[in-house]
Simulated scan of single mutants.
Amino acid sequence: MIATSSRKAMAGVAALAALALAGCHPPHQNPSDKKVDTAQSQDAGSLKGAGASATDATNVVEADQQATTTVAAEEVPSLNNCAAQGLVRPTRLTVDCENQDDFLEDIVWDTWDANLAEGTATRVVLSPDNREEGVKVVLGNPQVVDKELVFTSVSVDGTNVTPENNY
């Protein structure tokens, strides 16, 4: 009689365990309305662009490059001057990065747009001691450099200067 009761008890425990497990779901399983596609393989023909030619791929790359150029053209360029990068309407620029003895100060920008920046400044040359007011500063030739649109030419009173080349 004890053996029969033990068997019934064990059967009851097993039945309860089975019911408890049936009510559970496997770990990391999401409710059906929130399932995530976890496919390990896919038919290549079902992918977007399947069957596209190399010409189509080239056209896509060219379109992406044109879009990048258009976005860059709409940006307002900045200026890299010596160690300073991303300058917009700076009030001071160095003309000689190596010696730091020729610079423009008190710059007032009349124009700063996608193609050109123009302003006037005071040019200070420390050796020999010289200070000239009202010099014209022009920044131009915007180009994408390190993924940023920057002015790449600097002109002071009509003379092109290259501050960084003095290193």
Rank of each mutant, 00 (worst) to 15 (best):
M1H: 11
I2F: 10
I2K: 03
I2L: 13
A3N: 11
A3S: 11
A3Q: 09
T4S: 10
S5D: 08
S6K: 14
A9E: 06
G12F: 03
G12C: 09
V13S: 12
A14Q: 13
A15V: 02
L16F: 07
A18Y: 09
L19S: 08
L19F: 09
A20I: 08
L21M: 12
A22F: 13
G23E: 10
G23T: 11
P26I: 05
P27M: 08
N30Y: 13
S32Y: 07
D33Q: 10
V36S: 11
D37W: 11
A39P: 00
A39D: 11
D43C: 04
A44S: 13
S46I: 01
K48H: 07
G51E: 03
A52N: 09
S53M: 07
S53H: 05
T55W: 04
T55I: 08
D56N: 11
T58V: 13
V60P: 00
V61Q: 15
V61F: 14
Q65T: 05
Q65L: 13
A67R: 12
T69I: 10
T69S: 15
A72Y: 05
A72W: 03
E75I: 00
N81Y: 04
N81G: 01
N81Q: 05
N81F: 02
N81E: 01
A83N: 10
A83S: 15
Q85P: 00
G86L: 05
L93I: 05
T94W: 06
C97I: 03
N99L: 12
D102W: 02
E105D: 14
I107K: 03
I107R: 01
V108E: 10
D110T: 05
W112S: 01
A114H: 06
A114Y: 04
N115L: 10
L116E: 06
G119Q: 03
T122S: 09
R123Y: 05
V125L: 13
V125F: 07
V125C: 08
L126A: 14
P128K: 05
D129T: 10
N130H: 08
E133H: 10
E133A: 15
V135P: 01
K136R: 15
G140H: 01
G140M: 01
N141K: 11
N141M: 05
V144I: 14
V145R: 12
V145K: 09
D146F: 06
D146Q: 13
E148D: 08
V150E: 10
G158L: 04
T159V: 14
P163H: 11
Y167T: 08
